[in-house]
Lab assay of single mutants.
Amino acid sequence: DYEVGESVTVMDGPFATLPATISEVNAEQQKLKVLVSIFGRETPVELTFGQVSKI
């Protein structure tokens, strides 16, 4: 299970290999909103559970 505030690594898509912090969890739809730090700015990205891995 994923929790808000948890650190994960993006495994898929254009942000693969980047660390991210979970900002929202939708367990019903198996989706997460995460904040990816790009060029010093936090960018919100919506991903599925399968696109991230716990650190």
Rank of each mutant, 00 (worst) to 15 (best):
D1P: 14
D1R: 13
D1T: 13
Y2I: 03
Y2P: 04
Y2H: 04
E3Q: 14
E3A: 13
E3D: 08
V4K: 06
V4C: 05
V4M: 05
G5F: 04
G5H: 03
G5S: 03
G5K: 03
V8Q: 00
V8T: 01
T9W: 15
T9Y: 12
T9V: 15
T9M: 15
T9P: 01
V10E: 01
V10Q: 00
M11V: 12
M11L: 13
D12P: 01
D12I: 11
D12C: 10
G13I: 02
G13C: 04
G13W: 03
P14M: 08
P14Q: 08
P14S: 05
P14D: 07
P14W: 06
P14E: 09
P14N: 05
F15S: 02
F15M: 05
F15P: 00
A16F: 05
A16C: 08
A16T: 08
A16M: 08
A16E: 06
A16I: 09
T17M: 12
T17Y: 13
T17R: 11
L18N: 06
L18Y: 14
L18K: 08
P19I: 15
A20C: 07
A20N: 02
T21M: 09
T21Q: 08
T21E: 06
I22M: 01
I22S: 00
I22H: 00
S23V: 15
S23N: 08
S23Q: 14
S23W: 14
E24H: 10
E24T: 07
E24V: 08
E24D: 08
E24G: 07
V25N: 02
V25E: 01
N26G: 04
N26F: 13
N26A: 06
A27V: 13
A27Q: 12
A27G: 09
E28D: 12
E28G: 10
E28L: 11
Q29K: 11
Q29T: 13
Q29N: 10
Q30F: 09
Q30C: 10
Q30W: 07
Q30S: 09
Q30T: 06
Q30H: 09
Q30M: 10
K31F: 08
K31R: 12
L32V: 10
L32M: 08
L32T: 00
L32R: 00
K33T: 15
K33Q: 11
K33P: 01
K33V: 15
V34D: 01
V34G: 03
V34M: 04
L35Q: 06
L35D: 04
L35F: 09
V36Y: 02
V36R: 00
S37N: 13
S37F: 14
S37W: 14
I38R: 06
I38H: 10
I38V: 12
I38M: 09
I38D: 06
I38N: 07
I38E: 07
F39V: 08
F39E: 14
F39T: 07
G40S: 04
G40C: 07
G40I: 03
G40R: 02
R41L: 14
R41D: 08
R41K: 15
R41N: 11
E42T: 07
E42M: 07
E42I: 11
T43A: 06
P44Q: 15
P44G: 09
V45L: 12
V45K: 03
E46M: 08
L47W: 01
L47I: 06
T48N: 12
T48A: 11
F49E: 02
F49I: 04
F49A: 02
F49K: 02
G50F: 10
G50Y: 11
G50D: 14
G50T: 12
G50V: 09
Q51H: 04
Q51V: 04
V52A: 05
V52H: 01
V52N: 00
V52Q: 00
V52G: 01
S53K: 12
S53D: 07
S53W: 07
S53A: 12
S53C: 11
K54M: 05
K54T: 05
K54R: 10
I55Y: 10
I55K: 10
I55N: 11
I55S: 10
